[in-house]
Amino acid sequence: MDQIIVQILNGLDKGSAYALIALGLTLIFGTLGVVNFAHGALFMLGAFCAVVFSRLLSLSHEVVDETRTDFLGNPMTVDVPYMHDIFGPEVGASIIDWAVPLSILFSIPVMIAIGFAMERGLIKHFYKRPHADQILVTFGLAIVLQEIIKAFFGANPIQTPAPTAFTGSFDFGAWLGFDPLTIMYPYWRLVYFFFAVVVIGGVFAFLQFTTFGMVVRAGMADRETVGLLGINIDKRFTIMFAVAACVAGLAGVMYAPIVAPNYHMGMDFLVLSFVVVVVGGMGSLTGAVFAGFLLGILESFASMPAIVDLLPGINQIVIYLVAIIILLTRPRGLMGRKGVMEE
């Protein structure tokens, strides 16, 4: 029993990331009808937003500290972050400590701007082109974004720690009434899961309960009619693209403490997210979220030692295997709608 809970919990954080990326991908499919292979790169850019912001926050200048001396007997110089000057040492230190959550604020405008620029600058010209062309041009864009990041930040992963308040692990077992120390779960992953739930809830609420969202949903169902009603649907779809980019970016920001960002992390997630979207059903938002969590949890179950002993290698391929089975038995995916991206 406790093993099962452990695996479900382990699957949650990866599942959250899959769900967030797949949600964005599906939004883009559903609205613009574009296959965005650069979505993983947006996730990666988000993670690097966290890196940049925490570096910005910890910018420092040298100050001569008269009270201490170095090994030669001269007064020692110490690095003092600007944050300490502005907010005083205590608040400054905690701001630096909380750099990753704070960089959400920084990354939202950045990601929206990137999404907007991408849609207006590139994707717009590909509405009418075949899907193959869309895949190819966004694939090229993903390579370019990846290489730009590599040129600036190098090829090595960059450690971006979570706030110290969240570094420990939460003893889930004791909380649920099992033996203590059987089910341990890092706090940050829990935070990530709740964060993902909030973001997903936010996107759904936005689409469900606002007039803007209603128009977008109407446009997803029948773009032409909405256009005939005198609504500028293209503009709204562009905004939805920016929102999707932002969701992917936020997923990346918060993922930075879990896996140190490197330039190809986006590609690793992209392939799996595509599989998630296909399993969930092209164009179905709930399907994408559901399939994201489902596949995340399945993946962690498959990596249980008992199962790996039984079927070696299953942990590596379970997602692809599930995708193949689903596509062949339910061609539209778990919750796909009729008529959306049938071909």
């Binding site: 694939f139 090229g140 993903a142 390579i143 290489e147 040129a151």
Partner: peptide, 8 residues
């Protein structure tokens, strides 16, 4: 990078 740009 060159390859990606060329490709695009």
């Amino acid at each position: 990078l060159t390859l990606g740009l060329m490709f695009m």
